[in-house]
Design a protein around this nucleic acid. Structure first.
Length: 458
RNA sequence: GGAGAGAUGGCUGAGUGGUCGAAAGCACCGCACUCGAAAUGCGGCAUACGGGUAACCGUAUCGGGGGUUCGAAUCCCCCUUUCUCCGCCA
């Protein structure tokens, strides 16, 4: 949720930012918030004054009682009734204004950073780097350290100009992962349908072992990079849903246990970020770096077609998330470290990837700056999103009331929150199976072999 | 699931209707003493919102919500949660 201070400080910038995010009627809605805010302030002033008067009166009644001046006390008491009613009315007025204001603020998305490309769709996303393959003459930033590549703005390509012919296609024909899953008996989709429904695959034998290997590999890499491992609950209350912004924005996308009013998490971001809800952190403890593996649950209402085939889109899947809490001054550096971490994972898995800076219209509701990582599926001939790594600036922190105390002046202020997938399993598995198939079996990348316990799925 | 006892500031912990936003101790910060440190002494030390250039002032907050009362940390009701006992159980 945006802060009122952000709006008061630079309304024009906020409105422009919201328009970049293709948020309709930005100016009118912001004006409405300010209008309600004026009412809120007026009501509070009146209420505060009335309450101050009441407090004075009550105090004097106490003194009079103590001194045995009963009649004077009774006279004073008589005056309180009207005052009390007035306070109640003003309190209601203030509460109503606050509620109306919050309700609107919750519907306003975060404001994108200046770096975010203009545009309303995925076509406008900017490919800023590729790795694991060469992209002709188009992107000359290949295989460079992240820091440098992200600085090389000139080399970026909007997806609408992406040279499809340069995609890392294989010479020979490759089977899609749903065929491979059957051939090697790795995943049983039909059994999943029987016991749960579509989108709940059953991993079997080497398929299940591959899941475990990837989870352990990702957690081990996270640990190596200094992230603290967290194992949170997979079910959260509504307050946590609001804290990270899934509610009310994505109400229908989460599984909801109505009897207990609990939600199945769509990502570990929710419980792990909410660890810091209503917390004031010492600046010296920042940045906080956590990683967590959880199962993730998404209803994915409205998805269809090739997007949901095989492992491409599931209702339940495994994901390792990295979450950071940081100062405003350092959050950008944190974000870059996270990007480098995710990139490193893809390199170790020897997958061809591209990194996209999402356009204003394609970013999530809560993000200020977001990069997607996609890997190329040689059998499906398409790019699959495997990570989304974002900086939320103070947007989540404001809802969470996640603040930190600055060392220098002891001031309390909102922290920045960041998170990213590192990584989500299903599409990684799809690409691994499809890209590494050989006549002898499916090759396991070197880095993963110690975790899988073999160099090949046979 | 049943019964009982709790939930107070960063921590410990006093407070059972009237200057209680809250004693005291610890922790922390500043100053004094000291060559320096320890010890000691003095002072400071919550958050949000509103007003004010500011000093500062007002309001709210003692797990959360509602109620009684002129006045609630204190009394009543509901919820959450912790502990103890019983039941059930991986």
């Amino acid at each position: 949720m945006l802060t009122l201070k952000q709006i008061y400080d630079d309304k024009a910038a906020i409105v422009a930012g919201l328009e970049k995010k293709h948020f309709a009627d930005a100016e009118a809605i912001i004006d409405r918030v300010l209008e309600i805010d004026a009412q809120r302030k007026a009501a509070q002033q009146k209420k505060d004054n009335a309450a101050a008067e009441m407090n004075q009166l009550s105090k004097s009644i106490g003194m009079l009682m103590k001194n045995g001046q009963k009649e004077e006390a009774e006279a004073a008491k008589a005056k309180t009734a009207a005052l009390k009613e007035n306070i109640k009315a003003l309190e209601d007025e203030q509460a109503a204004a606050e509620e109306a204001q919050t309700k609107i603020l919750l519907t306003i998305p975060n404001v994108p950073y200046a770096l975010v490309p203009e545009g309303g769709s995925a076509e406008d996303n900017l490919a800023v780097k590729v790795g694991g393959f060469k992209l002709g003459e188009k992107l000359q930033v290949l295989d460079q350290p992240s820091e440098k590549a992200f600085a090389a703005e000139g080399a970026a390509i909007a997806l609408k100009d992406w040279p499809e012919e340069e995609n890392p296609e294989s010479e020979e024909a490759k089977l899609p992962h749903w065929d491979l899953a059957k051939q090697y008996n790795l995943i049983d989709f039909d059994l999943g349908v029987k016991i749960s429904g579509a989108g709940f695959p059953v991993y079997v034998g080497q398929g299940a072992r591959l899941q475990r290997a990837l989870i352990n590999f990702f957690l081990a890499e996270g640990n190596k990079a200094g992230y603290t491992e967290i194992m949170p609950p997979t079910v959260v209350n509504a307050a946590s849903g609001y804290g990270t912004g899934q509610l009310p924005d994505k109400e229908g996308q989460m599984y909801h246990c109505e009897v207990d009013d609990l939600y199945l998490i769509p990502t570990a971001e929710v419980p792990v970020t909410n660890l810091y809800r209503d917390v004031i952190i010492d600046e010296k403890d920042l940045p906080i770096k956590n990683t967590a593996y959880t199962q993730c649950f998404r209803r994915e209402a409205g998805s269809y077609g090739k997007d949901v085939r095989g492992l491409n889109r599931l209702h339940e899947f495994s994901k390792i998330e990295i979450v950071r809490i940081d100062t405003p001054e350092h959050s950008d550096a944190s974000h870059k470290e996270m990007l480098a971490h995710v990139e490193g994972l893809l390199q170790k898995l020897e997958l061809p990837y591209r990194i996209l800076r999402l356009s204003g219209g394609d970013m999530s509701f809560t993000a200020a700056l977001c990069y997607d990582f996609e890997v190329y599926s040689e059998a499906q001939h398409r790019w699959l999103e495997v990570s989304s790594t974002s900086n939320f600036d103070t947007y989540q922190a404001n809802r969470l009331k996640c603040r930190y105390r600055r060392t220098e002046d002891k001031k309390v202020q909102l922290a920045h929150t960041l998170n990213g997938s590192a990584l989500a399993l299903p599409r990684i598995v799809a690409a691994l199976l499809e890209n590494n198939q050989t006549p002898e079996g499916i090759r396991i990348p070197k880095a993963l072999q110690p975790f899988f316990g073999d160099d090949m799925i046979r």
